[in-house]
Design a protein around this nucleic acid. Structure first.
Lengths: 332, 332
DNA sequence: CTGAAAGCGCTAACAC
DNA sequence: GTGTTAGCGCTTTCAG
């Protein structure tokens, strides 16, 4: 059995309240006693029990970060931002991978609530997450990332997704493309809808039609890019350029194109959104609209800690996306 | 304040022990009362307090996974294996990114101990981790991944790293290469030493010299590959082929080669170890020695849960690496 | 400056 | 089948 403050008290010949105070550096304890007790604690190999402390203090100094896909390099970079900020402020982050599954997400949310984490940062699987979370929100602070809410009592950190879609499309248009498709995920996502709207707007402003049939895709994974492009080939509807909703989808499209005899960017131009590290490899050289990933994580964590401390009620931050021109788009 | 079992007891007109038993499906409680109490609990929005339960039950149903680099796609895939297995068995996994920093690692280990996680799976930053952990091992079950220990009281899951280094080098030799360098991380890692020994053995068995100067690198990150190859160029010591200790280092080497006028595989052959997803992209097409990533995670978690339940004392598993021939190596 | 004692929310004997 | 009670390890009034 692990050693407790009672054991220490016995050895030190003081009450266990004194031990608790000494170990927590309470000002009312004499420096001498503090030093003596800390010494004894160390020698006895004492490890404070955070579970017991959590029970009485009603906080755990743990926050959770729920992400849908740990294998998409976008999220690890966001996680780094969260972790860095959390660590500097004495919080420990519990990283949970929901794997794009609402069941998993709900389960984690439940467990996290039971574990009494102090707060949650979540990149929701879909807008369906909102109604589920809204119930608990009173109990536990939540910051959304990559997904807006309509109300102004929630907190979130997003990029201007409309603008991201717009920038990508506009760039392609300026390159002379007239037949531009959009391949993305499902429509139960605010960022998806916003990006599509940005895409449509850019088309319209340039007198191009936003054909509904040119908006495709089914998930936020690489396969969606691969499979959807394959579909296009089969249907003989390969456009001259594609806006991919994110970089891994873009990578999937490139892979599919490559394997079926289409050269990028000679036969088809592709632009992504996110700016994941692997897109920058010279062999890939993916043109993309970047998100400030690390900053998203940092900002979200900063807001969450403010929420926890009660210094703010809610905060919504919209960061700016920016174009990174590399080699997967070509003038026509 | 959250609702507790006492509140429920009051409403239901029973003692709170009864509530506890009903909620935990104890057999001694009549089905009727169970149903009634569960109904009341639900209506009152009760969430069990896992902190309090943890205090008395002395377990938390949480395990931790410590990885050195969440941005190396190798680890997320291992994490998926751990998570899947853990989830199926009612455990929650706490993912911690140590960022190749021993300080962070120790800090996490401490926090985890205080939080009384039931067990830990760790890919150590270096062999220095061992001495630090050995102290706690009696208290809390630990499974190492990607790193062996000498003693036979520890548990680990690794691949045969010697063989991985050997297979990679032998393949290059069979392709006709005579001047083969090795670029890897630091030597405070068992997998590093093993892979190098495999590399050396393959060279020796084929009558080639294992020149100490051809073993280079300084970290397990992409930069190590990039920078080290640059060094080779400067020193006019570019070999005809390189064994990279892992795939992201290989990617770094390829990037460096590419940017400095070396074509892969025409001017230089490169083989990696790991088989990360991005290496399989057609534009990259990295030849590599694969590790069963998901299986490593699964197996480690399975062992850990056995350790926790006490059904085994320790277990060491060595998985087989296997060659995946793609396009970055060429016959000379 | 330190001790005594209550209590955080829950589980698990031990009664009845 | 259900209630009573002790106690998990700790923090925090309240006394002194």
């Amino acid at each position: 059995m692990a050693v407790t403050i009672k054991d220490i008290a016995k050895v030190a010949g003081v009450s266990y309240a004194t031990v608790s105070r000494a170990l927590n550096d309470h000002p009312e304890i004499s420096d001498e006693t503090k030093k003596r007790i800390k010494e004894i604690a160390k020698q006895m190999g004492y490890t404070p029990n955070a579970v017991a402390r959590g029970l009485v203090k009603k906080n755990t100094n743990m926050i959770a970060l729920l992400i849908p896909d740990i294998t998409n390099p976008f999220y690890p970079e966001v996680a780094r931002g969260v972790e860095d900020f959390a660590r500097e402020n004495g919080y420990c982050v519990f990283l949970c991978n929901t794997n794009w599954d609402e069941k998993n997400e709900q389960k984690y949310l439940n467990i996290l609530k039971e574990r009494r984490v102090d707060g949650i940062i979540i990149a929701p699987v879909s807008v369906g997450t909102y109604e589920y979370i809204s119930k608990e929100k009173e109990d536990i602070p939540v910051v959304y990332i990559g997904s807006r809410t309509e109300d102004d009592t929630s907190s979130y950190v997003v990029i201007d997704d409309f603008k991201a879609g717009y920038i990508a499309t506009e760039y392609l248009i300026k390159l002379g493309h007239r037949n531009i498709a959009f391949i993305g995920g499902h429509d139960r996502s605010t960022s998806h809808m916003d990006r599509i709207n940005g895409y449509k707007r850019a088309l319209m402003e340039n007198g191009l039609e936003a054909d509904i049939n040119s908006i495709m895709g089914y998930s936020f994974k690489k396969e969606s890019g691969y499979g959807t492009f394959l579909e296009m080939i089969k249907n003989r509807k390969v456009p001259s350029a594609i806006v991919a909703e994110n970089d891994i989808i873009a990578l999937g499209i490139m892979e599919s194109a490559e394997r079926h005899g289409y050269r990028v960017p000679d036969d088809i131009s592709i632009i992504g959104i996110d700016d994941i590290e692997f897109g920058a490899l010279p062999k890939i050289n993916l043109t993309t609209v970047a998100q400030p990933k690390f900053e998203i994580g940092q900002t979200a964590c900063s807001i969450l800690l403010d929420l926890i401390s009660g210094s703010v009620d809610s905060r919504r931050v919209i960061l700016e996306p920016f174009l990174i021109v590399r080699g997967t788009c070509k003038e026509v």
